[in-house]
Structures are given as structure tokens and as C-alpha cells.
Amino acid sequence: MTDHDHDHDAASPGVDTAECPVMLGRFVVRAKAEAKGLVRNYNGRTYWLCCAGCVPKFDADPAKYAIA
């Protein structure tokens, strides 16, 4: 169950996809996320987000969602 209610650009795991760090288990096509501005860089790593609802969560506490 998500904690925000709207559509996601869900995808299956694959070469051109990434897992959203906020909504674990939800994959997004990297190019689509980039086109929508759903990409963040933190500590030298790139994170692709699945939807606009994940952006403020990631931005508020990127360390919480960053991969160690």
C-alpha cells in the first residue's frame, strides 16, 4: 500500500530501469523519470524516483533513502 494516492510509471526490473528509493519494490524507466525531472543526485549517486509524490520525501531526507 502506498502512502500517497496517484499514478506511478511502474516498470519491471531491467537494464533501463531503477528501483525508486522511496517506494521500494517499485521500478521506473530511467529515461521517463529523467524526462519528468524525477531524478536526484546525492553523495555522488543518482536516484530515479517513480512519481512526483516521492520527490519531496526524498528531498526532505535524502540520507534516509540513499543506498549505503
Rank of each mutant, 00 (worst) to 15 (best):
V29A: 06
Y42W: 09
T46R: 08
G37P: 01
C20I: 09
W48H: 03
F27H: 15
Y42F: 14
R40H: 12
V29M: 06
Y42T: 09
C50I: 01
W48C: 00
V28H: 07
V22A: 05
T46K: 08
R40Y: 11
L38M: 05
V22T: 13
C51Y: 10
T46V: 15
R45M: 14
A33G: 02
L38D: 03
G25N: 13
N43Y: 13
F27C: 10
W48L: 00
K32Y: 04
G37L: 00
R30M: 07
A35R: 04
W48K: 00
L38V: 03
V22M: 13
A33E: 01
M23T: 04
A31V: 09
A31C: 10
L49P: 06
A33R: 07
K32W: 06
K36Q: 08
C20D: 08
G25V: 04
N43Q: 15
V28M: 12
R26I: 14
F27T: 11
V29F: 01
C51Q: 02
F27M: 11
E34K: 06
V28W: 10
R26Q: 15
R26H: 14
M23K: 13
K32H: 07
A35N: 04
G37K: 05
R30H: 00
T46S: 13
A35D: 04
G37M: 03
L49Y: 06
T46W: 10
A31K: 09
E34Y: 09
M23D: 08
W48Q: 00
G44C: 11
M23L: 13
L24E: 11
V28L: 11
R30K: 13
G44N: 14
V29W: 00
E34L: 05
C50G: 00
N41K: 12
C50F: 01
A31G: 07
N41D: 13
T46D: 11
Y47H: 06
R30N: 00
R26A: 14
R26N: 13
Y47K: 02
Y42Q: 11
A31F: 12
V39M: 09
G37A: 08
L38P: 02
C50M: 04
L24G: 12
G25K: 09
K32G: 05
F27R: 11
R30S: 03
F27D: 06
A31W: 10
L49F: 07
F27E: 12
Y47V: 07
L49R: 02
P21V: 05
R40G: 07
V22P: 07
K36L: 10
R30E: 02
C20R: 04
A33D: 05
A33H: 04
M23Q: 11
T46Q: 14
R45K: 15
A35C: 01
V39W: 08
C20F: 06
L49E: 01
T46P: 15
T46Y: 14
F27I: 13
R40T: 09
T46L: 12
R30F: 04
K32T: 08
K36M: 09
V28Y: 10
G44D: 14
A35E: 15
L49W: 05
N41T: 11
C20P: 03
N43F: 13
G25T: 09
R40L: 09
A31N: 08
